[in-house]
Each structure stands twice: as C-alpha cells, then as structure tokens.
Nucleic acid binder design. Structure first.
Lengths: 232, 232
DNA sequence: CTTGACAACCGACCGGCGGTCGGTCTAGTC
DNA sequence: GACTAGACCGACCGCCGGTCGGTTGTCAAG
C-alpha cells in the first residue's frame, strides 16, 4: 500500500476527527480499531504509533470536546463590564443562543450521545466538562456572593450542583426527541416542564428572584423539536 | 466434568450472585464470561442457556440491586402516621441509618463502584434507582405540596432533581475515601462541605426551612472514613 | 552527496474475547 | 421402560485490541 507520511500532529488530528465520527455514530465499544484505520487508510502500526490504546483516543477526544465547550464561555468570564449575576445570566443566554444557532446539529448530537452504546462517551465528556467549568463558574459565584447578589453557602459546590442538574436537561432533550416522533405535543410539554423546573431550581440554589433566569425558552424548544412539526 | 443439575432459577441466582462479586471487584469489561463460569463451575453452554449475553447479566444485576434499594424505603412510603414532610425527613434518616449500620460494607462498595472500570455498572444502577424512586417520592411531594408543607412547582421533577443531586454526594464519598488515605482531615472537610451543600440545596428545592433536614451528619462521615483514623 | 539516526508507517501475528451449536445427560411423566 | 423437556457440555468460530520486527521517508551533520 502506498505509504503516506504526515506530521505527527496532523495524523493525530486526523485520527481524532475520524474517531469522533465513528464513536458518535456507532458507539465507542462497537467501533473497532480496524474500522478506524480503514476509514483513514493507515495501518494498525501507524495507529498504535500515535495512540497507546483505543481508550487513549477516547480520552483525547473527550478532552478536546470539553475544551471546545469551555471556549464557548471563556470570553464571557473575562468581561469586566458585567456584574456576577449578569455574567450568570449571560452564561445561560450564551448557551441558549449557541443551541439555537446549532439546533439541527445539536439535535443529531443529542440523539447520538444519548444512545445506550454511547454511555461511556457521554459520561466522560460530562465529567470533563464539569471539571473544567466549576472553577470559573465558582469564581463568578464567589464574587456575586461577596457583593450580595447571590445567597449561597459554598460557591464551588453550588457550581457543581448547577452543572450536575444541567445533565438532567440534556437528558430531557434526548427523551423528548425520541418522544417527539410519536407525540410532538407531549415531547414539547415534557421539555418545557423540565426546562422550567431547571430554571426555578437554579434560581433557588442561587438565591435570586423567581423568573430572573431564562435558560431554555419556548423558541429553543420549538427549534430543537422542529423536524417533527411537519406532521400536524 | 461432573454434571450438576439445578433448577433454572437457582442457577440464575447463582450466576447473578457470582457476577455481582466479579463485576464489582474487577469491573464489568474486565470480567470475562470464562471467569464467571469457572468461578461457578459450569460450562459456557450452561451460561448461555440461562442468559442471552453478558450484558443481559448486567441488566439483571442492576435491576436486582435497584430493587433492593427500593425495598429499603418502601415501608416508609406506606405509613400513614407521618406527614409528607416527615416522610421526607424519615426517608433521609432511613438512608443515613442504613449507611451507618453498613458503614464498612458501604465503604468497600463505594470504593469499588467509583472505580473507572465500573462506570457502566454505576450509571446503570443509578438510572434504574432513579426510575424506581421518582414515582413514590413524587407522590409524597405532591401530597406535601397540596398540604402546603412544600413550596414546589412540579413534584416529579423535584424528585428527579433531588435524586440526581444525591449522585453528587455519593461521588463525594468516593473522592473523600481516596483522599482520606493521604489526608484524613481534608477528606473529612470535603465530605462535610458536600453534604452540607446537598442538605441546603434540597431544603431550597423543597421550600422548607434551612437546617430542617439532616441527611448526612458528622457521625456518619466519621464512621465512613473510620479506618484511616488509626494514623493520627 | 553520503550517511545515519530517527520518526512514521506497515501488516502478519497473538492470546483471548463473547458467543454458537450439535450433542449428551437426567429428572420427571405416562 | 420409553419418552421428553430442558439443563448442561465444550470444541469451535470470527473477530477484537494490541504487539513487534521490519521497511520507508526525512533531514541534518559531515
């Protein structure tokens, strides 16, 4: 076979990118190293020259995904024209806007990520994401508590609680998506309910007024569930 | 080899029990079907006569574990001499008492369950447990809300939030356990902090007064981290 | 222009995995 | 005693993740 030589970092990026596609479409366990190297057109040896194991690829992939997620919010935390509470509001608005813009992609992503065979991938990514986001979020909460904007006991723990609950919303997205194929209205209501509960919960945890946060609005829900709207 | 014939349900229970031990000590992936059948002394054929796949054993195991967990709380929900809020208090006291009584076993269980290789087992068990507990908990919350004991928006969602956050505490147990080997004081403080945050969070989510719930007290923490106390 | 070190790459090979299947054995029934 | 259902056996299969001795391309020193 033709031997094509690339720089190590290019090859690694290529492997990672291909792995992302395969892991997400078939699941981590169901994707074999042979699948991966055939898709790229390299040998087993080449693969194991760049990665120590299949699991190693997963770790690297999860890391890069989490980093991308963090990058979305990082500029926000650096701004000094916002009060802590405004930052928190902006944090959620940020996430919501991104989700709206990427609605079709998000839909596919959620659908795939929440399949049983992707459990490992999903959890590792969520863990990594939490670990990365707790420090900056905690910092904002600390400042806000000092200024009396929040009524919280422990900023870092509160950040952890908030991020953890976020997982419930994502799960709701996945459940609603599945449900929307058979019952669009029920899916919409389920998602609305979960989103509401999440918003009210966060408000209580932060000690801010009811309805002062908008994390997932009706527009996003409609956008997210859109394709099933046709039948009506 | 001598052929020993047992009733199907006995054999299945035997397989399940052995699998529990192996999965928990070595992890699900790392336990092979050969390990399992050798530990029991049956053939491959016998194993696949009773279970469709290795995954099938995991599902059955998770189910039985979740059922055991539910059984612990079930009598409580049926009592009619307690108000909803008292039931919630009792629910947590129940859990705490159980943990105290089983402290050494719990310690080993947590240590094992939170190892990386047991991620799949852990998550499946937690999911199953949530699914089983949300309905009865939700019912209590509904009654309590109707009687004005709780200030909540959606009982079932609140139940889900509470159970989800419980996972954070269990994780804290695992982290603290690891930490306790190098720094007992830090472990104790971490656990205390997380436990406090959890209690305050639940109180806020339920709309009940601060410190009206005691879910994890200092005694449990001390008991749980006990073995590392020797060095001091 | 040669040489040599080293990184990138190749692919046959390995042990062992989950799972299959044709056949055997035994407790219970009539 | 003949028959049957189903518990049990274990050799076997395809394929998996991972290894390793060898080959090829790159590039800098002499």
């Amino acid at each position: 076979m033709g031997r094509i030589i690339k720089k190590a970092d290019e090859r690694q990026a290529e492997i990672l990118e291909t792995a992302r596609g395969l892991f997400l479409s078939r699941g981590y366990d169901a994707t074999t190293v042979n699948d991966l190297i055939q898709a790229i057109g390299i040998s087993k040896g080449a693969f194991y020259h760049h990665f120590a194991s299949k699991e190693d690829v997963l770790s690297a992939l999860v890391w890069s995904m989490a980093e991308q997620g963090l990058a979305l919010h990082e500029p926000l935390f650096a701004r000094d024209d916002l009060s802590p509470f405004q930052k928190i509001q902006a944090f959620f608005v940020n996430g919501q806007q991104f989700k709206k813009e990427q609605a079709p992609g998000l839909r596919a992503f959620i659908e795939i990520l929440y399949r049983a065979e992707n459990l490992k991938l999903r959890l590792r990514a969520a863990e990594q994401m939490t670990e990365l986001l707790v420090p900056p979020l905690g910092k904002v909460l600390t400042e806000g508590a000092a200024q009396g904007e929040f009524d919280i006991e422990d900023p870092e723990e509160t950040a952890r609680l908030i991020l953890n609950l976020g997982g419930l919303v994502h799960e709701a997205f996945a459940v609603a998506l599945r449900l929307s194929q058979s019952d669009y209205r029920a899916a919409r209501m389920l998602l609305q309910k979960r989103a509401d509960s999440y918003e009210r919960a966060i408000e209580r945890l932060l000690g801010v007024p009811k309805h002062s946060l908008s994390i997932i609005d009706a527009e996003l829900i409609a956008l997210f569930l859109a394709p099933a709207t046709q039948e009506r």
